[in-house]
């Protein structure tokens, strides 16, 4: 029953989320299909992601170690963790923009909870991470670093990233369907963020400013994963900031989804 006078938006968005998660099998099948499509007919397939990241690491690792006057054995493993975690975050954000517009054909042809598409984006990100994260371990072993149990502390950070990816995909997916100028804006913001976030450079290089870094949401979310990986751990400040920004993202995304869910079919 639908009554435009009392649209019951809250109940409907709640139902969408519940049904979306109930169809996790579909989201998983679609995510796998996405990866398959991307590497159709290629010999290495998704391993190309790993290879291209490895090549980039080699090139940048040696060059920037020289620029920063750091020993390669110290800098390159750090960069491996840093760059791979950043790539994960950046790719999720970039793909979030097309969460809904890329499946226009489906959205207008069959009734389906929109949250399935966000879940699909998260699972696709997880699949890509599964191809890239082991590279960090490989680099560590090559440089004679044996990761300890402390590395496992990266898991809560990864979980937080997954939650953020879900809400970001839903929010950006909707906003980008409505305003087609948003994807290029997001792209340039991410490019800027790459340079102002300590991805290539170590946080301690900015000396006095280091205390302010947690104000950068990308740094906070990234550091909850990278910190434990490189053995410096994630401070309470970093976690507080990451959680606060995630909470903000959730609140905005949830509010937007609740209010405009019914309009998506007209936007795409």
């Amino acid at each position: 029953m639908y009554d435009a006078a009392t649209p019951k938006r809250r109940a409907r968005s709640h139902e969408d989320l519940l049904e979306g998660f109930a169809r996790w099998r579909l989201a998983w099948a679609l995510a796998r299909g996405d990866i398959m499509h991307r590497y159709r007919g290629s010999v290495l397939g998704p391993l190309w992601m790993t290879v291209s990241t490895a090549v980039m690491l080699m090139a940048l690792g040696f060059l920037y170690a020289k620029l920063f006057r750091l020993p390669v054995v110290e800098y390159l493993p750090w960069l491996a963790a840093s760059l791979i975690v950043w790539n994960m975050l950046a790719q999720i954000t970039a793909e979030a923009c097309t969460t809904l517009t890329s499946v226009e054909g489906i959205l207008r042809q069959m009734p389906l909870p929109y949250s399935v598409q966000a879940l699909r984006a998260v699972l696709r990100g997880a699949l890509m991470a599964a191809h890239n994260l082991p590279l960090i371990l490989l680099v560590f072993l090559v440089f004679g670093i044996t990761p300890g149990w402390g590395t496992l502390a990266a898991v809560p950070g990864l979980a937080l990233l997954a939650v953020d990816a879900f809400w970001a995909s839903l929010l950006l997916g909707m906003v980008c369907a409505r305003f087609r100028d948003i994807p290029p804006i997001v792209a340039s913001v991410m490019q800027l963020a790459f340079f102002v976030t300590p991805v290539m450079w170590k946080p301690e290089l900015v000396r006095g400013w280091a205390a302010w870094l947690p104000l950068n949401p990308f740094f906070a979310v990234m550091e909850t994963i990278r910190g434990p990986l490189v053995g410096t751990g994630a401070s309470a400040t970093v976690w507080a900031s990451a959680l606060l920004y995630s909470l903000l993202l959730w609140a905005v995304a949830q509010a937007f989804f609740t209010r405009f869910r019914g309009r998506v079919a007209f936007w795409v």
């Binding site: 029953m1 639908y2 009554d3 435009a4 006078a5 649209p7 054909g105 959205l107 207008r108 042809q109 069959m110 009734p111 019914g262 309009r263 079919a265 007209f266």
Partner: peptide
């Protein structure tokens, strides 16, 4: 089929819906 939400009016569907649209 439940793809478009009406801007005005009421719609009641009682029963399981199957659509052969595309």
């Amino acid at each position: 089929a439940g793809i478009y939400e009406p801007v005005a009016g009421r719609l009641i569907l009682e029963g399981e819906v199957g659509s052969l649209i595309d």
